[in-house]
Amino acid sequence: MSMSLTMRRFDPDLVTGLSNDDAVRFALNLPTENAPMAEESIDFFQAWHVVHFLASGSDWDDTLPAGFMIGGDYWAQAHPEEEPFRLLDAGNVKLANQHLHDLSDELVNERLAQLASDESEIYGSPIPAEAHDLVISAFEEIRAFFSKAAANGQAVSKAMC
């Protein structure tokens, strides 16, 4: 399982014609000659799997829009043994954003309560009660990130390492 997830939001025109190596560097938010650094990036370490569960209600479903954290088009390959980085085009970003805002606080809190169980298969669970505010904060950070990306017609790249 990947330990971290880096997401970048950006103008989709920035990645047109990038080589695989430049796309990998871009997805990781590393400097490249052919593309600028991200307008905004977000890094999740172990918390990404918890946020994915809050958004999708599943451990590994990558079906869009609910599975936006791990779903999307294959884009760039960093290592042959690892899954390629993924890309959400501007249309899928808008769908993911709508999905995030359609989730009721009640449903998100129900899913968070499920993560307090020892039976959960989600990495990082069980989530102790004293960490619930941190998890909700991370979830709200993703909502804000996708709201900005959708409002600006941006795409989102995802690098799981």
Results as ranks from 00 to 15, higher is better:
Asp43His: 15
Trp60Ile: 14
Leu64Asn: 06
His52Arg: 10
Phe68Gln: 08
Val51Arg: 03
Gly72Leu: 07
Asp59Asn: 11
Gly57Lys: 08
Asp73Met: 02
Phe44Gly: 05
Val50His: 06
Ala76Ser: 00
Gly71Ser: 08
Ile70Thr: 11
Thr63Ser: 10
Gln46Glu: 14
Ala66Leu: 01
Ile42Pro: 08
Tyr74Lys: 11
Ala55Gln: 05
Ala55Pro: 06
Leu54Thr: 05
Val50Cys: 09
Gly57Gln: 10
Phe45Gln: 13
Trp75His: 00
Gly71Trp: 05
Trp60Phe: 06
Gln46Val: 11
Ala76Phe: 00
Trp60Lys: 10
Ser58Pro: 01
Gly71Arg: 09
Phe68Gly: 03
Gly57Asp: 07
Ala55Gly: 12
Tyr74Thr: 08
Val51Met: 03
Gly67Leu: 07
Trp48His: 15
Ala47Lys: 14
Phe68Lys: 07
Ile70Cys: 07
Thr63Asp: 09
Asp43Pro: 01
His49Leu: 04
Ala55Leu: 10
Asp43Asn: 15
Thr63Trp: 01
Ala55Cys: 14
Ala76Ile: 01
Asp61Phe: 02
His52Thr: 07
Leu54Gln: 08
Asp73Gly: 01
Gly71Asn: 04
Tyr74Trp: 10
Phe44Ile: 02
Val51Gly: 00
Ala66Glu: 11
Ser58Thr: 15
Asp62Phe: 04
Ala76Arg: 00
Gly57Phe: 09
Thr63Val: 11
Trp60Arg: 11
Met69His: 04
Trp75Arg: 00
Pro65Glu: 05
Leu54Glu: 02
Phe45Cys: 07
Ser56Thr: 13
Leu54Gly: 00
Gln46Met: 13
Asp73Thr: 07
